[in-house]
Amino acid sequence: MISELFKRVEFYLDARQNKEIFIYPGLNLGAEHSNVHTQAEATVFGFWVFLMSDAIIFGMAFATYATLLQGTAGSPGPRELYHLGPIFIETLLLLTSSFTFGMASIAMKYKHPTSHLVGWLLVTLVLGVIFLGMELDDFRTMFAAGGLPTQSGFLSGFFGLVPLHGLHVTAGCIWLVCMLGQIAVHGLDSETKLGLLRLALFWHFLDIVWIFIFSVVYLGGLA
């Protein structure tokens, strides 16, 4: 098993060095266009770098939340406003959507019929939209209980972080619709595949950020 893995890595490095049959791992772009693969490497690497930069944005928002946690200024705090029930369901929805996107990636990589890929993407989209709907409902409940961002530093910190994630998910959903459109117009060409790969990275990244929100914002706030 291990030696098999090493063999694969060696093969990959060899291929890279010779620039002969360099194939971008995880994607099925066709072996005959080696240019496509080298460009794919830069494109996907660039997107990873963008995600690192975006992670700093979230990091700053987390730090702000943590330092403002005590600044409730007499208005409702985490204990009055957080309800773990719906949050837990939202967590499950988002984690499941990451799984379904993973299935979509597999369908793309192993050339399953395009209908499979589209099906998994649609499931992902529906899960994402339900997540957003539930999150908005959370905010509505919080507003009703007096939890408005204008009330205190704590609530500003909360509404500076959690809706930021929500906006990212919204952008992800719009992007997903666009990718479905691109599949319809262009089929599964290299550009569409690369777009889907980047969207997948984005989607999983947002999943990880949500895990931190669940642990730091909700569990941490209630601790």
């Binding site: 702000t64 403002l68 600044g71 009330q151 530093g153 500003s156 500076g160």
Partner: peptide
């Protein structure tokens, strides 16, 4: 901008801003 446009309290003197 959120402080200025939507009356948040990230950096205000009172109400738990810092």
């Amino acid at each position: 901008a959120l402080d200025r446009y939507l009356d948040f309290h990230f950096f205000t003197n009172g109400l738990g801003g810092n």
